[in-house]
């Protein structure tokens, strides 16, 4: 009996705290929408954030994408070799990278690099009362802090996935040549012949959705941080975990609807 009530109360508290977070995010997205028409965001802050988000995550995205492309070539190479269908290598690697693995891996890396950093930054501002100081100066924290970050993350993740897809294919072509002995020209031919524009745009839709989700989640947990240094650590942890869940759930629904 005791055990059952303990389990029930655990499930209940978990459910309540999750609902609380989800509700907070919905409210935050409403605030963001309201600031979109008419657009209210701080110009210089936006430029600064675009620059920072892009520059910070560019190297890690390129490295990740290149390795992802290589790994996908190795994985599909095992089957390709078995059936001798070397002309399909570009398609196999390209299809999986462009539609799924590319956006997911780049999204996860982006969430670790930019999302976590964003939560830590906003969280520190929050626990040192800098957010309240903004309010006291009659500056709206949503327009000044949140809007530029959301815009920067959506735009930059979109661009990074475009660049990442390209580097992943280059990495894949190179690995195919070195490890499998498949000529890069054949690889390229396979991509051009079999990959549809639709596969590419499918990944980009995901990029935009992931960008918005990561921005929303990281701002939400950052702006709600309490409890000093320990609280900042906890907020960062919650933010990256929620981002990862959001990436997989959104990915599923986009795949489902776009298929």
């Amino acid at each position: 009996m005791k055990l059952i009530s303990a389990i029930l109360s655990l499930v209940g508290t978990k459910f309540l705290s999750w609902s609380n977070e989800v509700g907070g995010m919905i409210l935050l997205s409403w605030d963001i929408l309201r600031n979109c028409v008419p657009p209210k965001l701080d110009g210089p802050e936006t430029w600064r954030n675009l620059y920072r988000v892009g520059v910070k995550s560019f190297p890690i995205v390129v490295v990740t994408a290149m390795l992802t492309g290589a790994i996908m070539v190795i994985q599909s190479g095992m089957y390709i070799k078995e059936y001798g269908a070397y002309g399909l290598l570009g398609w196999g690697a390209g299809y999986s990278v462009l539609r799924e693995v590319g956006p997911i891996m780049i999204g996860l890396m982006f969430s670790g690099r930019v999302g976590a950093n964003n939560t830590a930054e906003l969280g520190t501002m929050r626990v040192t009362d800098q957010v309240d100081a903004l309010r006291a100066l009659a500056i709206d924290p949503i327009a000044y802090l949140v809007m530029p970050r959301v815009l920067a993350m959506v735009v930059m993740l979109f661009l990074l996935v475009v660049i990442g897809d390209l580097t992943a294919l280059i990495g894949g072509a190179y690995t195919g040549q070195v490890l499998l002995g498949v000529d890069a020209k054949l690889f390229a031919w396979s991509i051009v012949n079999y990959i549809l524009l639709e596969d590419f745009t499918h990944g980009l839709i995901k990029a935009v959705a992931f960008g918005f989700a990561i921005a929303l989640i990281s701002c939400h947990f950052g702006m709600r941080t309490t409890g000093g240094a320990v609280g900042v650590g906890r907020a960062v942890n919650a933010s990256v975990v929620a981002s990862a869940i959001a990436i997989f759930v959104l990915d599923y629904f986009i795949t489902y609807m776009d298929a």
Binding site: I60, L67, I71, R113, A116, N117, T124, V232
Partner: peptide
């Protein structure tokens, strides 16, 4: 507390990157 936030983000990025590299 600045430093704790920095270490936390650094750890996610480095560990994820290491996973991808080892995978490769």
């Amino acid at each position: 507390s600045e430093g704790v936030g920095r270490a936390t983000t650094q750890s996610v990025v480095n560990a994820s990157l290491a996973v991808v590299v080892i995978d490769f």
